[in-house]
């Protein structure tokens, strides 16, 4: 029987590969590979062999040119050694094959700056949004309430009732767009999958620290119109077990953490549609 296969790309400052891979395994992927970018550039590992690509958190190239900028440049210009193609060709082929990409934190920044999100009307590789410095001017590690948009096409949030509680850990998480048209399209097409909200998931908020970065319209996550590509600043792979919750010693919580549902949905989607 065919296997659902996930890949986590690491290297050059990616930091969350272990827990992202763990999340894929717990979520139901039959096989999960942590591949160093050099394994991909040498052609040893090919994205074509996988169904679910994780672009996970970290500080790619130190975020030296702005978060994830140098990696976006690498993805665009780096050649695969033994194949006559650029890395970006493999990624576009992956998208065209209807496969899944989840970008978390630095991965979301990367997808946005490569123009993979929001990619309205399928306009890939044209950047229309960005993630920039938090309004508070500082890196922040704190937990946030994320209200889900139940009408979003995201395949990752199926069955999420009201929202998720997850940590953010970033200095450049403020989501902004190039103009009102992009924002209108994101909201009109329900692509803003999660917004920062109050503890009851009742309404999006601009209030610090509930909204830790000042994102426009409190946007914390964005998907494309197919729902298969999603980027989010909060870290689902950081809340897989109840003991990750900051108040697990005082609240009655289910054994499983809020973040796992996204990976379960990804695995279920792959098994139902791509095998």
């Amino acid at each position: 029987m065919a296997k659902a296969r996930a890949i986590v790309i690491t290297g050059n400052g990616t930091n969350c590969e272990m827990e992202a891979a763990h999340a894929c395994r717990l979520g139901g992927f039959d096989e999960t590979v942590i591949a160093h970018i050099s394994d991909i550039l040498t052609g040893e590992v090919r994205l074509d062999e996988f169904h679910f690509l994780n672009l996970t958190g970290g500080f790619l190239d130190g975020d030296d040119l702005g978060s994830a900028k140098a990696q976006a440049n690498r993805f665009r210009y780096a050649r695969i050694n033994d194949l006559k193609e650029h890395l970006i060709d493999q990624i576009m082929r992956f998208i065209d094959a209807g496969k899944l990409i989840l970008g978390v934190c630095n991965g979301f920044q990367l997808m946005t700056k490569m123009g993979l999100l929001p990619a309205i009307d399928g306009a890939y590789l044209t950047q229309t949004a960005t993630l920039t410095f938090n309004d508070c001017g500082r890196f922040q590690d704190r937990w946030v309430y994320l209200k889900v948009d139940p009408a979003s096409p995201s395949i990752y949030t199926r069955g999420v009732d009201r929202g998720l509680y997850l940590p953010i850990r970033h200095g450049e998480g403020k989501f902004v767009v190039d103009g009102p048209a992009t924002l209108a399209a994101i909201e009109g097409k329900h692509l803003a999958v999660f917004t920062y909200s109050d503890a009851t998931y009742s309404a999006p908020t601009m209030e610090f620290p509930l909204n830790p970065n000042g994102s426009v319209n409190a946007i914390a996550a964005v998907c494309n119109e197919s729902g298969r590509l999603m980027g989010m600043m909060p870290h689902p792979e950081a809340f897989l077990h109840r003991t990750n919750h900051p108040r697990w010693t005082r609240e009655e919580l289910p054994e499983e953490g809020d973040g796992l549902v996204l990976f379960r949905n990804a695995a279920a989607y792959v098994k139902a549609n791509l095998l």
Partner: peptide
């Protein structure tokens, strides 16, 4: 709060 205390996914008792 400026220090990431949760990366690697194994945070159990946090600073706060």
């Amino acid at each position: 709060r400026r220090y990431d205390h949760e990366v690697q996914g194994g945070s159990v008792v946090k600073p706060f």
